[in-house]
């Protein structure tokens, strides 16, 4: 079972605020999941090759450039100032 602190740490890594009531619920839920996931420790018969994704081919190093959309980019921005995207003051810049 994850400690209160571990849950808080993960929640901050994920930038998800959780209330004190939720902490216990998460401790409980995460434990159940991790107990299931820990089964992977029983699996040991496999070789070193790893599969990042089932890619059909390598990257094409001769590929040409291609267009992607660049219109109305700022149309969904919650807080704008002129052409800039606004956020609260960034710390430890």
């Amino acid at each position: 079972m994850l400690t209160k602190e571990e849950v808080m740490h993960v929640a901050h890594l994920a930038r998800i605020e959780i209330t004190d009531e939720e902490i216990f619920k998460y401790q409980k839920d995460l434990k159940v999941l991790f107990d299931a996931i820990d089964k992977i420790k029983e699996l040991n018969d496999f070789d070193d090759d790893k599969m990042i994704a089932p890619w059909e081919k390598d990257f094409d190093i001769e590929r040409k450039s291609v267009e992607v959309n660049k219109d109305n980019l700022l149309s969904n921005v919650p807080k704008k100032k002129g052409n800039f995207v606004e956020v609260p003051v960034m710390v430890n810049e």
Binding site: V68, N69, K70, L73, L74, N83, F84, V85
Partner: peptide
Amino acid sequence: MANTCTNIIDLGYPGSLPLLNN
């Protein structure tokens, strides 16, 4: 001018995917 050299990839738009400039 601010945010004029951009597209959906540069803004990390949902559904956008990285390309790779050789």
